[in-house]
Computed example of a mutant assay.
Amino acid sequence: MVDLDEPIHVVAYGPAWAQMGHELVRDLSRQLVWASADVEHIGSTSVPGLDAKPVIDVQVGCASAHIPAVVEAIQRLGFEHLGPAGVPGREYLRRRSVHPANVHVMECNGQLWKDNLLLRDFLMARPDLARRYARTKHAAAGQASTLLAYSALKEHTIAEIMAAARQAG
């Protein structure tokens, strides 16, 4: 199995990210129709104007019984499977080719599914918090050049934004 940690960099928002996310959602939805999977563009690249790592994140939700077969189908599309990668209830896959992407497979409508959508939608509705999060991301990337350290440096801000999102919800 490949190591989860990898070099990262944060860049200014890319207007093409929305289209790339849409295309990946469309392609995965077509490939996974047999599993009645829901596919959503999530993460920072799904929030207009938010600086991010130039990697498209999507989540695939399906019945828990379908998760192993869904993971296998996504692997056949050129994604490497890294297991839960520290997040219980999720199977993490990544592709680092021309269009880098992460796919998070989980039970549809479970708590993780709902939390990812809540965070995305809250940041879309609150540009002030998206700007704060972007500052945190740039500061974290300035202190840590690899994924795991970078992610750890952002945890506190993400927890605060999630708490505000839940309170507002």
Rank of each mutant, 00 (worst) to 15 (best):
Y150G: 05
G142T: 04
A140Q: 02
G14L: 10
G21N: 05
E91A: 07
H41Y: 05
V103W: 04
W17P: 01
G169K: 08
I42L: 13
H66L: 13
G142V: 06
C108F: 06
I56F: 09
A152P: 01
P127K: 04
E160C: 05
P84W: 08
P54N: 11
A140T: 03
P68S: 09
T45S: 06
S44D: 03
L148Q: 08
R132A: 14
I158C: 01
A149Q: 08
I67R: 11
A65G: 10
E40P: 00
H138C: 13
L118P: 03
L147N: 01
L4A: 10
G78W: 15
R95F: 09
P15A: 15
P100G: 06
Q143N: 03
N102A: 15
Q19A: 10
L50Q: 10
A12T: 10
H99F: 15
A163E: 13
H104D: 11
I74N: 00
G110T: 14
P68F: 05
A69E: 10
M162T: 07
L77S: 13
E23Y: 08
G21Y: 01
Q143L: 10
R90M: 12
G78H: 09
A152Y: 07
Q143H: 07
L50V: 03
R30W: 08
L129E: 14
P54G: 10
P7W: 02
V47H: 14
A35K: 07
G43P: 14
D51H: 05
A149T: 10
Q75G: 02
W17T: 06
P48L: 07
C108E: 05
A163R: 13
S44G: 10
R132G: 15
E160P: 00
A130F: 11
Y13L: 12
L117D: 07
R26H: 14
H66E: 12
A140M: 03
L4N: 02
L112T: 11
A101L: 08
I56M: 14
H156F: 08
A164Y: 02
A65I: 15
S151I: 03
L123K: 06
M20P: 00
A130G: 08
Q75S: 04
